[in-house]
Structure formats: C-alpha cells, structure tokens
Amino acid sequence: MIRSNVVSGFVCLGFGAYVWWLAQAVPPMTLTDNLGGRFFPQLISIGFMIASLGLIITGFFGIEISGGTVAQDKSVQPRAEGGDAAGGRTVEQKAAEAPAPRFGAGEVRLLAFVATMLAYTFLLPLLGYVVASALTFAVMIVIAGERRPLRVALGAVAITMMLYALFGVVFNMRLPVASLY
C-alpha cells in the first residue's frame, strides 16, 4: 500500500464532493444557455472524484501507473551515472517511500518561512514597502541559514533597495505606503 497516495486520494475525493455540493448553488440554466453555469463544474467534480477513487484503489494495491515521458526518461537516465539530476531523483523517491514523515529542521524552516511570508502581506500595508520589506527580508535570510548579523542586515537592505529600484523606479509601480504613521 502506498499510504501517501491513499490519503491524498481521500482528501481529493472529499474536495470533489465539496465542489459538487458548492455547485448546487449555481443556477442550472438560463434562457439562452440550456447547459448553465452548473454543468461544467459538476462534470469536473465527478471526474475529480473518479480520479480520486482510482488513486485510492491503485494506491491500496501499491500500483503506480506512470504516464508519458517518465517511461522514456527511464531508458535514458541510466546514462546519467553520477549525474546530479538522476541522483537527486532517487533520493527524493526514497524520501517519498519513507513510512512516516520526520519532522526535522527542514520542516521548521519551511513553516517559519511560510509564516514570515504571510506576515509580510499584513505588514506591507501597515508599515509601507521599505520598512516592511527590510524587516521581513532580514527574517527570511536568517531562516534560510545566514546567521552573521552584519551580513543579514546588509543583505536585507540590499534586496529591498534592488527590488525598489526595479519595481518602483524602472517599472514605475506604485509600492504600498504606510498607513500606521
């Protein structure tokens, strides 16, 4: 059994059913259009649920039906002996087959980075582009692995200025201004 496939299959199945239910609220037909806005989304949601079932069933029996060029890739890739592309892929495959995902430093970095990005979208209108960006970029650089304070500060300021020059000056975009002060 490929557990990740079965689980993601069930999640997709639930999502498909949710879309079907949502689409019930769309008017089925109008005077000129006998199909209406409901038909297409419902058709897709049915397809979505069928594909989810396929993923659950094949996942349960441990089958992966690969599509398209993956099969061709396999015939070529053994030539890439020692190649990073081929090497990277096998490592990823092994990671995917691991029974339970380990919650390590990588995952902490990931969640922290996502949280920082989300915070950025709230800070931008509040503090304005320059302050919000410099702060956020500094945090991002630290999360991504740079710990020397001077370099973090310089890097954050440099990236803020470069993006400002590119978007604000060259492309003449209106950057968010502060509403707090």
């Binding site: 299959g9 993923l55 992966e64 599509g67 398209g68 060029t69 993956v70």
Partner: peptide
C-alpha cells in the same frame, strides 16, 4: 497531459481537473 511526465496518471488527472 497524458504525455506529460507524471509518476501516477491519476495524480496527473487530478492536477488537470
């Protein structure tokens, strides 16, 4: 989509839909 590289055709179909 069927000829795009996908490890599992059901996942390819779900992404398309």
């Amino acid at each position: 989509v069927a000829s795009l590289a996908t490890k599992n055709i059901f996942k390819g179909a779900l992404a398309t839909l």
